[in-house]
Design a protein around this nucleic acid. Sequence first.
DNA 1: GTGAAAGCGCTAACAC
DNA 2: GTGTTAGCGCTTTCAC
Lengths: 333, 333
Amino acid sequence: MATTIKDIARVVGCSPSTVSRALSDHPQINENTKKAIRVVAKKMNFQINQVAAGLRKHKTNCIGVIVPQISNYFFSSILSGIQKVAAQAQYQVFVCETNESVEQEAGYIKSLSAGRTDGILMSLSKTTDTFDHLNDLNRQHIPLVLFDRTSDKVNVDQVEAEDESGAFMAVDYLLKGGSKRIAYLSGPENLRNSKNRLKGYKAALKKHKLSFKNKLVHVCDFNDADIKEAMTELFANNSNIDAVFAANDIMAVEAIQVLKSMQIAVPDQVAVVGFGDYPIARIVEPKLTTVSHNAHSIGINAAKRLFKAIEGVSLDFKEEKISSELIIRDSTR
Amino acid sequence: MATTIKDIARVVGCSPSTVSRALSDHPQINENTKKAIRVVAKKMNFQINQVAAGLRKHKTNCIGVIVPQISNYFFSSILSGIQKVAAQAQYQVFVCETNESVEQEAGYIKSLSAGRTDGILMSLSKTTDTFDHLNDLNRQHIPLVLFDRTSDKVNVDQVEAEDESGAFMAVDYLLKGGSKRIAYLSGPENLRNSKNRLKGYKAALKKHKLSFKNKLVHVCDFNDADIKEAMTELFANNSNIDAVFAANDIMAVEAIQVLKSMQIAVPDQVAVVGFGDYPIARIVEPKLTTVSHNAHSIGINAAKRLFKAIEGVSLDFKEEKISSELIIRDSTR
DNA sequence: GTGAAAGCGCTAACAC
DNA sequence: GTGTTAGCGCTTTCAC
């Protein structure tokens, strides 16, 4: 068993409270007592049980971050933003991965909210369609801020990219460049971002007085096989497609690979635009034109909101949009 | 304040112990009582305080994973292996990022070991050169397993890639292909993997009866600017370099970019081999020849070891090596 | 089948 | 300046 303050008290010959006070550098404790206690604590290799302290103080100085997938560059950039703010606020961050499963999501929510952390930042899994586990948090007064994968069905702070205008910029740029039939590789349909990006796509078509064609839209599940299938299907039935807009860079890069394998020249025959500005966008050939959604800022702002809420400063519930920008490279004309 | 078992007890009209037993489905509690308690618990939106339970039971069913950098593909692959094993064992996993700082590392170790988790998996930060914070864990009887970034200065289970033989295979292959002057872009010097890969590099040279030249080795700090500088320097002073072996794929890809910008043809003038088989290896042109170190297996085996230790099955302390393999693509002849 | 009481390791009034 | 006491929310022995 590990050393406790009781053990130290016994050795030093004082009460546990004195030990507790000495170790947290309470001003009213005699300097010599403090010294003696610190020496013994060190010698006995004492490590404070932060969980017990947290239970008592109702304060952990930890936050939890729940994401669908840690290895996704977008989420890890957001994470680095969050960590930066957390470090400044002297908080530790525990990251949990749901693997796109609502069950895991609910499990982590429970676990983190059950006295482990002072607040939670989270991005919904793509299968999440019930929100009881989130609304529970409200009732428990555990601050929650959603980022990126947000939802209008839950009444909390939300920080997300300007998906609609980002998609609009991308498609508008393609149309200005002369493209007429633009395929859209969408992410999972029930995600709000997917819907918003579709809105932007449609709005750009409208601006250029082109009609929306449903068969140019393919919903993909964020995996390579899916994209390959979608691309093959699109180009089999609509050989006159002249551009592809993908809901993220991974899909866009995969689309480029498929086009190459079909001997279709990018951007001369088909232009490609992605979303996210992942590092891979600068490596693939041709270098990918893409919409940057400023993931780092999403993380920073979401974290700032969370800390405000933890401090009890209740901002009005707000949806915050982080501006996106179009980054033009070589996969478009 | 959130609902507690006391609140439920008051409403139902029984004792807290009965509530506790009912909710954990104790066999000796009357079915009707259980039902009644569950109904009230649900209505009052009760969430058990797992931290309090953990404090009492000395068991959390959580493990912690500490890595230098979450966004690194290598670490996220390892993580997915860990998660898989953890999910099977009904454990939750909390991921912590040190950003290569020993202070953060020590902070997270303390925090996780202070009653928050039943065991810790970790990969050392590149600046870690003292090991007290790790040896403390031993004294506290908190199981620890190191992976990838390991050290011979701490006496715990360690799981790592076959760095030396992996590097040997890569360099041997280059030499067999006709390369004579092979530059090595090494990772930070104090990491054991860097040293082991260097050993492999030297062993391959020796096999082919070539002498080791120190000026062909450049230590880089895992960032793009560094690699650019190293490459520029190498190729300014040794224009007859005909191959580059990089300690990871990110560096290798960056090296290819630099070579391209210098109008040097890959692989015809200079061959390039990486380490890791990151997804980017199949995207870059030419596609990257690289050593796969089977990150997923590293995660799985490290986690299995940890769970054995948590269960009290004390395997002998062991260093386990996961086999690497050479994946030949287009960046070599 | 259920309750009372003790205690996990810590902190914080309240005493003196 | 330091000790006593109570209690954070839970589980678990020991009663009955």
